[in-house]
Design a protein around this nucleic acid. Structure first.
Lengths: 216, 216, 216, 216
DNA sequence: TATGAATGAGTCTTCATTCAT
DNA sequence: AATGAATGAAGACTCATTCAT
């Protein structure tokens, strides 16, 4: 996890220590962000630590002062993205809303993540480059989101706002559709991120919000 | 494209020449297949030519006797997959069928490709490792399938069997859902490939085959 | 041209930066020199980067820290030799001298170059291993020396100190004689480099410094 | 030295055996010639056996039917060139001629060799690629020519037709000048091979055919 | 004789990572 | 906190050469 400046050397005061700590974190985040951008743009293996360092106008060992390995970089990016989404979720999700709206809200946030620098790494970069443990952790986090969605789907059946025949496959489908978005979405295009996210959700809202077509 | 045994000078017999040619192609295909399996399993960069050679019980230069570079391997796998799909498509597509059925048929075949060794490479491996020209060719082939689907969607609107509000986004969604399938599908699971493909299509059939939910 | 320590950000002091820069150049020159010795001794293709590294007691990537490719090594050796000669030439050539003496002076310096580590590469190693551009540059530099000699020959005709019937062929001959010297000269022999150079020039002085034999 | 068709298999008759033998030799010579051309053009290491085979429209193993190794190819080319020169020399050298004319004659023949495919290999390709034995043999053959020239020089001193101050250096010079010729001579230029050879010799004739300039 | 196929033994080059300062 | 220098480990690709037919 790389060395943290454990109040090494003349800790003048708490404040300065805090500042230092903050700065350290800030710089670390900067590295993650730049790395995420490059990974998303060129791929994990196609990006060298040197390129990340160059983009930040620092030297390679400086990167290593903040992170322990390239793998950690990827893991931290993915983990940060997922964690951020969790924070946003627990902050904004309003349990009082109908399930279909909560689903919409979920995928709005998920879409924003997936189309952000950090999220793109989640969708675009295979976790194969990670060690088994990291991979397992990440997958369990992702699984969590699947469960969240499945839960909303269940609740939607109960509150009558959602009706899908095959919740499992629906979940795979909607996640697939969103995860694949970075492959074709470019924010240089005419539609904003949020517009695209909304449009994409509408496709699935149609499925979710009514009776089976053949049930007529 | 690597040297082909151009049946130079005094071919003992047409048969033997053909046989040789056939064997050559057969072996080449074997290499592509094995490479595809390994690429799909471990990733492009995580697979070495040595591993491919080992898996086939031949030496590394033997691989290079049939292919020119690792990149060509990836390109040919993708291209072969796409070409095979095109062949299957033009063989089986029955223009007399209602559009919705043709859509189902298309995605049945597309799903089979995407879940085959060759197709998995299409969905899982970034084309970043390809040179610009190869990448362009592949993308144009893929684009073709999008156009095919968009056309079917249009025709469905006319014959009344398909109704989607946002054909573009619908297309992105369904391709995304299928392209993402290799990420979670394992043929060691209980469902067969075809079952999964069918189930996945049902999700989208529901969207496609009825009036907009809010149109009531 | 390989990364140069571009004295990025907060250089502790000009002195140290300069020192570093100097050391870097010094080490680079050491690599060129060692490579030149080995190239001259065993040939370009018969010398591996590993051997150069071994001879310098460093690891292979260290070589690559200072140079970009084996080809650049060869180019830089040749270029350095040629550049050094140019420097020596513009420093020492005394335009007031009679042409024949300037010719002698030129080939003294040329001989020293051609029998030095760097020059031997010029004469012994084919520029075929170079890319077209580098080859062109080098050839143009060499051509320059030919022109210099042709000019001296012309001036010699005017100041009466040189008389050759066929300046073009004379130029080819004298350059050939000197360029071929590394093939037989060994500084383990009894004669010093300068003695050999002088002796070789005497052969051509005889041609140059009198009327055509058949002109009697 | 590679297998000779030791009248293997049904030696129908002497004639056919001879024919076969002749054909074998003829084909072998063809290979040597083509290899020489390519070596001279691109260099020894830059030429692959495949390229030689391709140029002859045969397969690689066919080359190996006639020669044992790439090294042998180079050795045989050089050796053949040298041997041919020897044959020409002993055929044409007229001991009755004045030494200066015999020298001219020698370098006419030497020049023709050095500018032929075979000779170019002698001058252009380093013998470093040869094993010590082959190298020694070749060098001893070359040495022989030096001795021949030195002998002619001596005889010239006696018959009064040649006068050089430093026979050793003169010999190095003239051989150098000729050996270097392939570096600049192109038979696409305006002058014929023989014209160039003659012109080059004239430069040295001037040195050789008169008293020391400073001896006046 | 001739060839398609196969291979052992390299060689250049890259890159994540560390060391010394 | 930051960097120039150094390196171990690996991987793509080549090529002379051989085998089996």
């Amino acid at each position: 996890m790389s060395k943290k400046p454990a109040s090494r050397k003349r800790p003048n005061s708490w404040e300065s220590a805090d500042l230092r700590q903050e700065q350290h974190e800030a710089k670390r985040r900067l590295i993650l962000k730049q790395a995420a951008v490059l990974f998303a743009d060129r791929g994990f293996h196609e990006t060298t630590i040197d390129q990340i360092a160059d983009a930040l106008h620092v030297s390679k060992p400086t990167i290593y002062y903040y992170i322990d390995s390239k793998e950690e970089l990827l893991y931290d990016i993915a983990h940060t993205g997922l964690a951020d989404l969790n924070v946003a979720l627990s902050r904004d999700q309003n349990a009082a809303l109908p399930a279909i709206d909560r689903l919409a809200q979920f995928f709005t946030m998920y879409g924003r993540l997936i189309l952000s620098e950090f999220g793109v790494c989640l969708a675009l970069i295979s976790d194969r480059s990670l060690n088994p443990q990291s991979r397992r952790r990440l997958r369990s986090l992702k699984k969590q989101f699947e469960i969240t969605v499945r839960t909303i789907l269940d609740e939607g059946r109960q509150d009558g706002t959602i009706c899908v025949d095959d919740p499992k496959m629906f979940t795979f489908a909607i996640f697939g559709a969103f995860n694949w978005a970075p492959q074709w979405f470019s924010n240089k295009g005419p539609s904003s991120t949020d517009q695209v996210i909304a449009a994409m959700f509408e496709v699935f809202r149609k499925v979710a919000s009514q009776k089976s077509p053949r049930g007529d």
